[in-house]
Amino acid sequence: MEQMDRKTYWREVRKRTALLLVIWFIVGYVLSIFLVEPLNTLKIAGVPMGFWMAQQGSIMIFILLILAYAIMMGKLDRAAGVEEDAGTTTPPSQAH
């Protein structure tokens, strides 16, 4: 596979970041706050769904979003050849 150039890499980083933040907003704000009242009329095993999203579901999805980010970015780094070598440290003096 041909190596991705750096411009494409950075565009892909921003695309994935934007996608995750859209999900973050929908889960944390749209479902858990703006639509909580209509969602509360939907009950699963007696638990109102709007309430459950706000106090349980949202936190679980936040954890999964960060997991997805770490995995996606790792793949992207390798595709563009910008990953760090195993075991290397970036000393503060060489970072720029």
């Binding site: 933040l21 973050w24 949202s58 936190i59 979003l65 960060i66």
Partner: peptide, 17 residues
């Protein structure tokens, strides 16, 4: 109370990405 539950966890998504 979700204000504090989401407020003090959702920020980590911003921090991470």
């Amino acid at each position: 109370g979700a204000v504090y539950l989401m407020g003090w966890t959702g920020g980590y998504v911003l921090l991470a990405v």
